[in-house]
Design a protein around this nucleic acid. Structure first.
Lengths: 113, 113
DNA sequence: CAGGATCCCTGACGATACTG
DNA sequence: CAGTATCGTCAGGGATCCTG
């Protein structure tokens, strides 16, 4: 796995393409995967690590932080020992799901092309 | 403009996320913009340059070549002087348009959020 | 007009070690 | 368990010059 990392497009302004806004949100190498996992209740850090072992912990953390900063996911910390943290989609994040689904459907057809 | 460039995800295999296939196609910094331009008949090299002056000629060329290699767009050369080259969406490329549209719609709402 | 060739830079991402 | 800190790598993209 090497691509699927999109250099953020910081040139654009609102008169430019709105698509770029969207790309800047979901354009991380693992972000679509993370969104997909959280949606399917693979919503804890360690579970995500197992599900995508090629991504380093640092990278996983970074992508989670960015998604959180963009308001796509929410981080819920439980004061327990050992600590427990769960992630969930925000209402804004859920509006991205149709796009992710469309991409998945397209990707499957593309593979079978 | 700085982000919207997604490092291609080359780890994935068909058992992994199909979304990544899609991201690897449209995940270039300027690819969604290019697709949008071509669809709206801004289909010549010089016209695209004027429409997105922040992208260098080299970058524009590279992104066009990648889109062509992935079968998303088609390059048509006319044997004239000065040379004329036009780009058009392939049938496969057209199947991406609903995704681009969904992203644009989402992006507009996101900006006004 | 529509590139090709070359060189370079930066930031996304990875690897490893350590921690409350 | 769920990170943080640090450092390194690499490829996507930019800048400039040249060409059929």
């Amino acid at each position: 796995m090497t691509k699927a990392s999109v250099r953020k497009n910081r040139h654009f302004n609102p008169t430019n393409c709105a698509v770029t806004y969207c790309m800047n949100i979901i354009g991380g190498k693992w972000k679509p995967v993370i969104i997909h996992l959280i949606r399917n209740n693979t919503n804890r850090y360690s579970l995500m690590q197992k599900a995508m072992p090629e991504a380093s912990k640092q990278t996983l953390t970074n992508q989670l932080r960015e998604l959180e900063a963009d308001g796509v996911i929410e981080r819920m910390v439980f004061a327990e020992t050992p600590p427990r943290v769960e992630y969930k989609m925000t209402d804004l994040g859920k509006t991205l799901l149709p796009i992710i689904d469309a991409m998945r459907t397209w990707g499957k057809d593309y593979v079978n092309r």
